[in-house]
């Protein structure tokens, strides 16, 4: 039963990584930049939800909606003010700017909410855990709903990207920016939309993550951000199903190495797996092969 419990908590953690990784992978796909500020958008989302439930006394689901709205706006603003002026100037400049944005968000949160950890109340407080296998296996509502949310988001996003006009425009821009523009696609709008979706999902991920691990600090988003980024690269950056697979595998690896090998070394094992995958398949599990032109 222990094994099953681990699988479920691994899938649940992996689902959080997958949802965060979606933001990374979409942004990378469309603007070829490593958005290191994404992890901090998660943190802001979690804080917004915390503020709504604790200070204003709103219902958890309303709080989630508000957090999503705030993060969506935040994502669009960050893209507009910090990244758009640097589009097409090489990855290093944008990377450092993203790091600047990440510092900014962390220190902003530090100023507003202080350094002391806040206890986050779970979104699913009051729901009772599910007992299976004759009471031996207990599944928390957080795990079930996180996994469910991941599946729903993944299906919705795949449909959005493949069926709708805006989604197709996004794919066209990520394929060839210039050609897309010539076809009458509004590139700026597409990129803004990508950032909006990614940041909105980051808010969901933040709330789900803090429901399961309820300690909230200005640095809460940093490590999950890096891990989710690893997940995105693991699955092949730029690919939506890749983000899901990468996230789930990473979550499982992390929980299993914590349970069976060593708590301290679990992160090292996660990163070692990434390196092994990249050595075998240099563009990740589902990544496109890059051909080199002379």
């Amino acid at each position: 039963m222990n094994f099953l419990t681990n699988i479920i908590s691994g899938l649940s953690l992996g689902s959080v990584y997958a949802i965060i990784a979606l933001g990374y992978t979409m942004v990378y796909g469309i603007s070829k930049m490593l958005n290191f500020a994404h992890g901090d958008v998660i943190m802001i989302g979690a804080y917004m939800s915390f503020v709504m439930t604790q200070y204003i006394g709103a219902n958890g689901w309303i709080a989630l909606l508000v957090a999503m709205a705030v993060c969506t706006l935040l994502g669009i603003t960050i893209e507009r003010l910090a990244y758009r002026p640097l589009r097409g100037t090489g990855s290093l400049a944008v990377l450092i700017t993203a790091i600047g944005v990440s510092y900014f968000l962390q220190n902003m949160a530090l100023l507003i909410w202080g350094a002391n950890p806040k206890m986050f109340t779970s979104l699913f407080k009051g729901m009772s855990p599910v007992h299976a296998a004759g009471g031996k296996l207990t599944i928390t509502p957080e795990s079930i709903l996180t996994i469910a949310a991941n599946i729903v988001i993944m299906i919705a996003l795949t449909l959005f990207v493949s069926k709708t006009k805006a989604g197709k425009a996004m794919r066209a821009v990520s394929e060839d920016n210039g050609a897309a523009q010539l076809m009458g696609i509004n590139v700026n709008q597409s990129i803004s939309l990508t950032f909006a979706i990614g940041s909105g999902l980051a808010a969901v991920a933040g709330v789900l993550m803090c429901s399961a691990y309820p300690i909230l600090m200005p640095t809460t988003g940093a490590m999950p951000g890096i891990k989710a980024f690893t997940a995105a690269v693991f699955g092949g950056i730029g690919s939506i199903p890749g983000a899901m697979i990468g996230g789930l595998i990473l979550g499982l690896i992390e929980i299993f190495s914590r349970a069976y090998i060593s708590t301290e070394l679990s992160d090292a094992i996660v990163f070692a797996c990434l390196i092994i995958v990249l050595l075998v398949k240099p563009t990740g599990l589902l990544g496109k092969k890059i051909s080199e032109k002379v």
Binding site: L95, T230, F271, L274
Partner: peptide, 27 residues
């Protein structure tokens, strides 16, 4: 192993190695 990788992939692998080294220092 990593110098065959290009650009951003190399960056993420160096990031991973940095974290692995730090994790090993913890034990």
């Amino acid at each position: 192993p990593i110098l065959g990788l290009r650009g951003d992939y190399l960056a993420i692998v160096t990031l991973a190695f940095g974290e692995i080294i730090r994790n090993f220092m913890n034990v």
